[in-house]
Design a protein around this nucleic acid. Structure first.
Length: 424
RNA sequence: GGAGAGGUGCCAGAGCGGUCGAAUGGGCCUGACUCGAAAUCAGGUGUGCCCGAAAGGGUACCGGGGGUUCAAAUCCCCCCCUCUCCGCCA
């Protein structure tokens, strides 16, 4: 959620920044106008309430003395009639302003490339050299099926297309990746959590999935105010919803493994085969709560933390910074890490690391108190995949495949593989 | 799922129709005392919004929403959550 006062005081700048995020100036005008009306309406309502409260106290005094208070009560009755109308308008404006604010995306940081879509993204770095294979690499789904470690058909039988059944060494590898990632992050100082996999509407509003992305993104439970969590960013970020943290406790670094559930409606036809785009996938998530002045540095260090996983696995990747038009709703700046996939002869997104500044903190009401001034301020929240486990599986299968059709387990995973060094 | 109890400030806990943003105790902060500390004493200690240059003023908030009333933390209704007992279950 954006700061209404910022919009008010910087109309032109806000309009320009939001244009990069495909938001027209009309919406900003609307919200600013409504806010101006709200202020005068609130003033009038406050004055009316003040008069009523004063009179009510006088009535109380008179009655306690046994005096007649009919005249005062008549005046209050008159006030109440007007108050009803003014308060109704006040409420209407509040709700409309809030609804608009909840649907506005975060403002991009000044160093984010401006553009309408992914064509304006910029590569910032590369690591590793894609291996030159002396045979035609197979796509991961074929490797998985041939080795009998991924069963797409039975996954679909059990739950439907986009639900994956891992078997034997495949299941073991998935679990190894999760544990390896969690260990890597907790060693770096992230506190491990095990979170609820169902989340309520308040939590989803806090991180920004609601109200805007309800139908295309989320599975909702029937007759319940509960949703399958679309990313562990939601439960992790909401740990401190409606709380005031102490400055000395910041930054707070947390991590969790959780499955992510996504309806992906509207994306039919894209990445229909294999593990790339599915309805349930595992992810190890990183979340940070930081002071505003430290969030940029925290963002860079979070990116490095996610990169570390790929380096340890020896998987080549590149980092890109997303353009204003390609960033997620809550992000003010976002790096994507893309891993090398031989079957594509190119790079594919495996992690997204975002600085959400105070956007989520304002929605979720996560604040901290400055030690010196005692003032409360919104924290900055950051989140990043560290990494998407399913897509890491893809990268391992494809990059570590051999001419013989086997897969050699990367050294970093061996402690987690119960003696399996090669999947045959 | 059934029966009961309860959700009040940083914490504990009173208030159960008016003068209550809220007693009291603890914590914390400031000052006095002290070489320093402890103890003691005095004062202070919520958040949002609006007006204001500021000082300050107004308003709202006692789990959430609605209602009754001149007036609601207090009464009524709905919802959420916690605890105890029973049932069920990993």
């Amino acid at each position: 959620m954006l700061d209404i006062k910022y919009l008010l005081e910087n109309k032109d700048e806000a309009a320009e920044k939001l244009a990069g995020r495909k938001i027209g100036p009309a919406l900003i005008r609307k919200i600013v106008d409504e806010y101006e009306e709200k202020k005068t309406t609130q003033k009038e309502a406050d004055d009316l309430r003040n008069r009523r409260n004063t009179l009510s106290k006088e009535i109380g005094v008179k009655k306690s003395k046994g005096e007649n208070a009919d005249e005062l009560m008549n005046e209050v009755a008159g006030i109440k009639t007007r108050m009803e109308a003014v308060e109704a308008r006040e409420k209407e404006l509040d709700e409309s302003i809030r609804a608009t604010l909840l649907n506005l995306p975060n403002l991009p940081r000044p160093d984010v490339p401006v553009g309408q879509d992914e064509s304006a993204n910029k590569e910032v770095s590369r690591w590793g050299t894609p291996v030159k294979l002396d045979f035609t690499p197979l796509p991961h789904q074929e490797i998985g099926e041939k080795l009998g470690i991924i069963d797409f058909e039975r996954g679909a039988k059990i739950a439907g297309h986009g639900f994956i059944l891992y078997c034997g060494a495949g299941a073991l590898l998935e679990r190894a990746l999760i544990n390896f990632m969690l260990d890597t992050h907790t060693e770096a100082g992230f506190r491990e959590h095990f979170v609820p996999f169902l989340v309520n509407a308040e939590s989803l509003t806090g991180t920004g999935q609601l109200p805007k992305f309800k139908d295309e993104m989320m599975y909702q439970l029937e007759n319940e105010n509960l949703f399958l969590n679309p990313t562990a960013e939601v439960p992790l970020t909401n740990i401190y919803r409606d709380e005031i943290l102490a400055e000395k406790d910041l930054p707070i670094w947390v991590t969790a493994y959780a499955p992510s559930f996504r309806r992906e409606s509207g994306s039919y036809g894209k990445d229909t085969k294999g593990l790339i785009r599915v309805h349930q996938f595992n992810k190890v998530e990183l979340v940070k709560f930081s002071k505003p002045e430290e969030s940029e540095a925290e963002h860079r260090s979070m990116l490095e933390q996610a990169e570390k996983v790929l380096r340890l696995l020896n998987l080549p990747y590149r980092v890109i910074v997303l353009s204003t038009g390609d960033m997620g709703f809550a992000a003010s700046k976002c790096y994507d890490i893309e891993v090398w996939l031989p079957s594509l002869n190119g790079y594919k997104e495996i992690s997204s690391v975002s600085n959400c500044t105070d956007f989520q903190a304002r929605r979720a009401n996560i604040r901290f108190r400055r030690a010196d001034t005692k003032k409360v301020e919104f924290v900055h929240t950051l989140n990043g995949s560290g990494l998407a486990v399913g897509r890491t599986m893809v990268a391992v299968l494809e990059n570590c495949q051999t001419k013989e059709g086997t897969v050699r387990i990367p050294g970093a995973l061996l402690p987690y593989m119960r003696g399996v060094t090669e999947i045959k």
